Computed example of a mutant assay.
Amino acid sequence: MFDLVLDRSSVVHGVGGVTEGFRTSRGTWLRIEQRLTWRLKSAAWVGLEAASTIENVPIPGWFQSTTWADPARDLVWRADEVEFVASPSVRSAGGLEAAKALPTTWWAGMRSSLKALSEHKTERVGVSQDHLTLRIGQVFEGVDTTVDEWATAHADLHWGNVTVSGLLIDWADWGLAPRGHDAATLWQASLPDPQLLAQVEAEFADDLQTRSGRLSQLMHCANAIRIADRRGTETPFSAPAKVEAEKLLVDLRG
């Protein structure tokens, strides 16, 4: 369909084995995804294509896509040709240590990107009120989880989805979310490192100190605690999440 030759040696497998990515003969990147047919209603199926309409946010260019049915396996496949991103993600460049080494220009650029993204009009939903209420309620009682500010968000902004050059990648889940949700996601991804955590709190204070930002942080704490409970052992994220949650609860219950 695309008249491309794939560099098989460049393959990158996504989490769970449902996606693969390849360098192409055109110098682009081809992302291939499979889904069970009953999951096609998910907005994530067209997230990358839909994100191409967002302005003033550094997003890899999207060029074309195609889909095809695989009834023998009850699957549908999708392929997207996008701009090849040479800059590594912060996670692959060194994780939390690489994040602490990011220059002030990177943080300023990220604040600008998230502000522009927050103002983009969309009907997509990244994090719903029901989802936030459910996740917080599974761990913490007596919290009014009503969100009072909503904004468009990437909705999965951990250190694996931002590059050292400031590009935002993996746009499957973007849509409306509580204000500050993206900053809270970076905050949660930084929990094991107090120095980095403090920097994220300072850089995104305007959003994180809002009611919606604190609720987003508490939801991420709940998720970290739930994962540890399910595994039966603490994780690098769950122990600091419990400490931070207590601080958040004082404010949110007050």
Rank of each mutant, 00 (worst) to 15 (best):
Q217A: 07
H181L: 11
L208W: 04
G180P: 07
G175Y: 12
A202L: 09
G213S: 07
Q195E: 14
S216R: 03
R179M: 07
A228S: 11
D173H: 15
S212K: 12
L191R: 04
A198E: 13
P192S: 05
D207E: 15
C221W: 00
Q188E: 11
D229I: 01
L218C: 04
W174I: 10
R231C: 05
S190R: 03
L208Q: 06
S190F: 03
R231Y: 11
D193P: 01
N223M: 14
F204Y: 13
W174P: 04
L196T: 06
T185I: 12
W187K: 00
W174C: 05
G175V: 14
W187Q: 01
V200K: 03
G175T: 13
F204M: 12
R230E: 14
I227H: 13
G180D: 02
L196I: 01
G213N: 06
A228V: 11
G213R: 04
Q209G: 10
R211G: 09
R214N: 01
A222L: 12
S190L: 01
P178K: 10
A222G: 11
D182V: 02
A183C: 06
Q195W: 03
L191P: 00
E201Q: 15
W187D: 00
A198V: 04
D173P: 04
D229P: 00
C221A: 08
L191F: 15
A224R: 06
P178T: 12
Q195S: 03
A202R: 15
I225F: 02
L191M: 11
A222W: 11
A202Y: 05
L176P: 01
H220L: 12
A184H: 14
Q209Y: 01
A189N: 10
E201A: 14
R230C: 03
T185Y: 15
W174M: 08
A202M: 11
E203N: 11
A205L: 08
R230V: 02
W174V: 08
A228L: 06
T185N: 12
Q217H: 04
I225E: 02
D193T: 00
R214W: 05
A222H: 10
C221D: 05
R226P: 00
D207R: 11
W187M: 02
Q188N: 08
L215N: 13
D229N: 12
F204D: 10
P178Q: 10
N223R: 15
L186N: 09
G213Y: 08
M219A: 13
H181D: 09
A177M: 10
I225A: 02
A198P: 02
I225K: 01
L218W: 07
I225N: 00
A222E: 08
A183Y: 12
R231W: 13
E203A: 14
L186E: 09
Q199F: 03
R230H: 13
N223I: 15
R179F: 10
F204K: 10
R226S: 03
A189E: 07
A198I: 05
S190V: 07
H220G: 00
A205W: 06
L218D: 05
D193E: 02
A177K: 14
L191Y: 04
A228M: 04
H220A: 06
F204H: 10
V200L: 06
N223V: 13
R211T: 12
R230F: 07
N223H: 13
A198W: 04
L197C: 08
R179A: 13
R179K: 15
I227Y: 15
S190I: 03
